[in-house]
């Protein structure tokens, strides 16, 4: 999974301003951040500091107001919505706090969905879906619907969905926020394993228990990276 391109993600002078009526809200300001392939980066900070906005931009769900974003050597900050969707399908895997599985689709269909959007042939899709579900230990739940699963199982399906297409980067937004401690630990372990297998992980969290899992933590405050903050350290 790690690429030779270094860094995998480069943000330079990145800002995001939201306009509501006549009010400007600077959600992110002057963010400079490099993330290497295979890194496990945790993004933390208080509520409203811009963590989710940063993750949206990293996941190409949103575009920066200023600055540049280079993903795997390709500038992506000025792409159209359709172009961003194509890059997203190929390069980004999302894991959400609320799992965000689609209730009308089975476990198999949920995991298969991003691969369909990517245009992967059916036989390749099938083996990728089965491999991903095997990885999270849910092969026996292929035909179940999300409502028939526990919270931990749902998040594991979400992880399988995120990794099935072998994206360049996995973005996780409070992935254990909706789970009890046992299920949370299970998912945390799963992410650790993925990283150990070479996956690049960017995890937004403000739970210090999980920050230790990351090899590097960046701290956001009022939309800015706080250099030298206690948690902005690389864990050996």
């Amino acid at each position: 999974m790690p690429l030779a391109i270094d860094p995998l993600i480069r943000l330079t002078g990145l800002s995001k301003i939201f306009h509501t009526d006549e009010v400007e809200t600077h959600a992110l300001s002057g963010i400079d951040l490099d993330i290497k392939a295979g890194e496990y980066v945790a993004v933390c900070g208080p509520s409203g500091c811009g963590k989710t906005t940063l993750l949206s931009i990293l996941g190409l769900l949103d575009t920066p107001s200023e600055g540049s974003f280079v993903l795997a050597g390709e500038p992506v900050s000025t792409l159209s919505a359709a172009q961003r969707a194509r890059v997203r399908a190929r390069a980004v895997g999302f894991i959400f706090q609320a799992f965000n599985l689609i209730g009308d689709l089975t476990v198999y269909q949920n995991v298969e969905l991003p691969l369909k959007y990517r245009g992967m042939p059916a036989d390749e899709r099938r083996s990728a879906v089965l491999a991903a579900l095997d990885r999270v230990g849910l092969l026996h739940r292929l035909k179940h619907y999300p409502s028939q699963l526990s919270g931990g199982q749902q998040q594991r399906v979400a992880v399988a969905r995120a990794v099935a297409g072998r994206p360049l980067v996995l973005l996780a937004d409070e992935p254990t926020g909706n789970l009890d401690s046992a299920n949370g630990a299970e998912v945390t372990a799963l992410l650790r394993e993925l990283n150990q297998d070479g996956a690049t992980l960017v995890v937004v969290t403000h739970d210090p228990r999980y920050l230790r899992e990351a090899r590097r933590t960046v701290y956001l405050f009022d939309g800015r990276l706080v250099p030298g903050a206690p948690l902005d350290v690389e864990v050996a």
């Binding site: 969707a85 997203r88 399908a89 959400f96 689609i102 969905l113 959007y117 969905r161």
Partner: peptide, 11 residues
């Protein structure tokens, strides 16, 4: 969610 998973506008 579908867009986050890579759905393009046509889809």
């Amino acid at each position: 969610i579908r867009m986050a998973l890579g759905a393009v506008p046509d889809q």
